[in-house]
């Protein structure tokens, strides 16, 4: 009788273990995912192939810039968030191709592709060691995604076993400026 109980107990235990493992073991994407490097605004974070420092966040309703000799003005249904940052490659030349605005709700906004040709956009040129680049990244986000966001910087959009700088952005920001001219922006 006790033998039967033991057998049944072992079976139940095995089933519980299997279900638990199925539910709670991290998946392949998770265990080979990005290696986070967390920090605050104004702090220099040094990852495997680059270092990054985010200095300032500005909000605007419209942006004006000059691209290919033409004056362009862009508006949005939400708001533009501009992050002024410095990037440097180390120890070797690298392309840091991905900047993502992760909202407090978890939505991931890739840097807006609507600013091709705008001056001093980060992520368009290759970075060289010893030659830090200062510039900006522009995001287009709904107003409710502004507060409490995180800036994710990595070599690619989905880094695999590679650095992803995660910079906590200010919880509250000024009200958006009606218009920012990118050529008059103070980067320093």
């Amino acid at each position: 009788m006790s033998g039967a109980f033991a057998k049944l107990g072992a079976l139940v235990l095995a089933a519980v273990l299997l279900v638990g493992m199925q539910r709670y073991t991290p998946g392949y994407a998770e265990i080979t995912g990005p290696i986070p490097l967390t920090g605050k605004i104004g702090e220099t974070l040094t990852g495997r192939t680059f270092s990054v420092r985010a200095d300032k966040v500005l909000l605007a309703e419209r942006l004006r810039f000059k691209a290919y000799g033409r004056e362009v003005e862009r508006d949005t249904g939400g708001v533009f968030a501009l992050v002024i940052a410095a990037l440097e490659a180390q120890p070797a030349s690298v392309n840091v191709g991905s900047a993502i605005w992760r909202s407090a709700q978890g939505a991931r906004f890739v840097a807006s592709p609507r600013f091709q040709g705008a001056p001093r956009l980060l992520g368009t040129d290759r970075l060289e060691p010893g030659l830090p680049q200062r510039g900006l990244v522009i995001f287009e986000i709904p107003r409710e995604s502004v507060a409490g966001a995180t800036l994710l910087v990595a070599a690619s959009r989905w880094p695999r076993l590679d650095t992803q700088a995660e910079i906590a952005l200010p919880a509250t920001l000024d009200t958006p400026a009606p218009l920012i001219d990118l050529s008059e922006l103070a980067y320093e």
Binding site: S112, P113, E140
Partner: peptide
């Protein structure tokens, strides 16, 4: 085409219909 810009649409951001 993205009508807001009269330019080719290259990406849509979550929560911002166009």
């Amino acid at each position: 085409w993205l009508m807001r810009d009269k330019a080719m649409l290259s990406a849509l951001q979550p929560g911002l219909p166009e």
